[in-house]
């Protein structure tokens, strides 16, 4: 399918050095996007640097009001973590709804956010909870991290180490999936935290994940599904494709937000 060179690494600096030494290198995390992209000819790296051998990139720790998840932690491990389920229930539920079981057994949080697919689930959790992404050189807030469709603030050769999610008083994620791909046609993550209500939307924005400030304002005064009755969202900056038109997505955003608020209890 391709003529890349496969390189393994057992430490982060080794992976960074191998990536730097490559003419057109790509990092391999779970491979759930990279490998299909190579097979389809959408990606043709000269070298593939596998991060799987770096054991300290995987793992979950909950302390001091935050949940920190190593970049190579698989979706299945987040979904199955009783610590995550206790600290941020919606995050565990979100991970358990990504793709299918086989994708969850291989796909990683670092790979997902680095790819920043506009219909991916994790970016919504990052933005709604105000997560911090730690790389091998710096920390980046979720607000600054997701910069556009399949675009992030990551620099050349920069590698994600972990993602820290502050816990929140209430969280819920609701998505309306494409029945074929199970990607979010519309996904809404609602969080009530120290800085109020945040509503992050995935699957819709022409620039990828974003916060729906109108719904946040409506919920700020009255946190109830009823507070969203009559609320509308503009379809002007939403995607239209064969799966759903922008105005349909706009309608679903409000509906998914209502369901998420109701699920917050």
């Amino acid at each position: 399918m391709s003529n890349f060179q496969y390189l393994s690494a057992s430490a982060l600096d080794e992976a960074a050095a191998k990536l730097k030494g490559a003419q057109d290198g790509a990092l391999l995390a779970g491979g759930m996007t990279l490998l299909p992209s190579i097979k389809l000819g959408l990606s043709d790296p000269s070298d593939v640097v596998d991060l799987a051998g770096i054991s300290d990139l995987a793992g979950i720790s909950v302390k001091g009001g935050s949940v920190t998840i190593g970049a190579m932690t698989r979706h299945a491990d987040v979904a199955g973590s009783s610590d995550v389920a206790k600290a941020i229930p919606a995050l565990a539920a979100l991970a358990g709804g990504i793709g299918d079981q086989q994708v969850r057994n291989r796909g990683t949080i670092g790979g997902s956010i680095a790819n920043n697919d506009p219909a991916a689930d994790y970016p919504a959790a990052c933005l709604a909870l105000g997560a911090t992404i730690t790389t091998d050189s710096r920390s980046i807030s979720a607000e600054d991290f997701f910069t556009g469709l399949f675009e992030t603030a990551l620099g050349e050769g920069e590698i994600i180490k972990s993602v820290s999610f502050p816990t929140a008083e209430k969280t819920a994620y609701q998505k309306f999936t494409s029945p074929a791909s199970r990607y979010a046609l519309v996904g809404v993550f609602v969080a009530v935290g120290s800085d109020g209500v945040r509503v992050a939307v995935t699957g819709c924005g022409q620039g990828g994940v974003y916060r729906e400030s109108g719904l946040e304002a409506a919920l700020g005064g009255d946190f109830s599904a009823g507070a969203l009755d009559g609320q509308t969202v503009s379809g002007d900056n939403l995607m239209s494709d064969i799966h759903a038109a922008a105005d349909y997505r706009a309608h679903l955003i409000v509906e998914m937000a209502k369901r998420a608020v109701a699920a917050c209890g």
């Binding site: 496969y6 393994s8 391999l28 491979g31 759930m32 490998l35 299909p36 596998d50 799987a52 299945a76 299918d100 079981q101 086989q102 994708v103 057994n105 291989r106 791909s181």
Partner: peptide, 24 residues
């Protein structure tokens, strides 16, 4: 990686073998 006909167990976890490199 859609249909699942190629699923095998890798260290006890199901995986789509068409979306894994042999070297992995």
């Amino acid at each position: 990686s859609q249909c699942g006909a190629c699923v095998v167990l890798v260290n006890g976890d199901s995986a789509k073998s068409c979306t894994m490199l042999a070297v992995q």
